[in-house]
């Protein structure tokens, strides 16, 4: 039972990151290999913010991360979004304008991903960084299942983020416009939708989700330059497993991947965690390429 609880925690982080990936995939129409670095850069911005505010202040009851972490997330989202929008302006926008192929965009993202990781190395050093040094005290939430209160709070936060994204896409005008663009950009323009504005919004939302995932992950474990790159395969696996373009599918996919990974850890195969998601992904592509909840193209 314990591994299910761990798996859900893991899944909630994968889901956040994968939903961000899904946003850019649907609207900008390419697999953003630099999404992992968005997550990592966000975590480092949040770490900076927490350090400035003062780690350990503002502890809220049993939850140790306290308000500084919650405040640092929006700060990190703003900072990371500025970086991401600048990169889009300098790299992806000219490529889009010159009608570059999807593969060119992916390759540029792959190059940017390498740059991002090494820029973190350059500015923050190669050692892992810790948000705080407290010793978490697990509580028994069910017979035989123990969880740290922070982890429960993180699962709750992720759930809130997922529900907000759902409501945003379904209920708001902006969300409806994004869905329209993801289905047919030309028709969206004909309807008066400003594609540039939608693209900016998509980057910001994708970034917000990734930064939230990165900050929470950094809080539970540590922040390091490769933290996002290591998450890339599970995120892609969740996306493909659930069916590209289907948000519920992505959440479901993240759940399966998260549980499978913690299952692997349970059976002492933690070294092969990333390979587990890859195997699941290949199996899905072989048997049901449109994913669990996806529609056939």
């Amino acid at each position: 039972m314990q591994f299910i609880a761990d798996g859900i925690l893991n899944a909630s982080l994968i889901a956040l990151g994968a939903l961000g990936l899904s946003m850019t995939y649907n609207v900008l129409r390419f697999a953003n290999f630099a999404q992992g670095e968005v997550l990592a850069i966000g975590a480092y911005f949040a770490l900076g913010a927490v350090t400035v505010i003062g780690a350990g202040v503002g502890v809220m009851g049993p939850i140790k991360f306290g308000w500084p972490l919650l405040v640092s997330i929006p700060i990190a989202i703003v900072c990371t979004s500025i970086v991401v929008l600048m990169v889009d302006y300098l790299v992806f926008r000219p490529l889009r304008n010159s009608n570059a192929s999807r593969i060119t965009l992916i390759m540029a993202a792959f190059g940017l991903s390498l740059m991002g990781r090494n820029l973190i190395h350059l500015f923050a050093g190669g050692d892992p960084k810790y948000f705080s040094f407290y010793i978490p005290k697990a509580i028994e939430i069910m017979p035989g299942v123990k969880m740290v209160p922070d982890d429960l709070a993180i699962i709750a936060l992720s759930a809130i983020a997922v529900v907000s994204l759902h409501l945003f896409l379904k209920r708001t005008n902006m969300g409806r416009m994004m869905r329209a663009v993801s289905e047919n950009p030309t028709l969206a323009r004909i309807n008066g939708i400003d594609l540039k504005m939608i693209i900016r919004m998509t980057w910001i939302i994708g970034t917000a989700l990734a930064v939230t995932a990165g900050t929470l992950q950094g809080h539970i474990f540590q922040a390091k330059a490769e933290m996002g790159f290591d998450m890339l395969l599970p995120m892609f696996a969740a996306l493909i497993l659930g069916g590209v373009g289907n948000l519920y599918g992505t959440v479901l996919g993240a759940l399966v991947i998260g549980l499978a990974e913690s299952f692997a850890v349970y059976f002492d195969l933690s070294a092969y965690r990333a390979a587990v998601s890859f195997m699941i992904m290949l199996a899905v592509l072989l048997v049901r390429p449109q994913g669990l909840l996806g529609e056939r193209e």
Binding site: N173, R176, M177, R179, A180, E183, N184, L187, A188, N191, G192, I193
Partner: peptide, 15 residues
């Protein structure tokens, strides 16, 4: 927009 409802299609016309 095939994946959107008729009502949503109409709303998109009036953004």
């Amino acid at each position: 927009f095939a994946k959107l409802s008729v009502a949503e299609n109409l709303e998109l016309g009036a953004i």
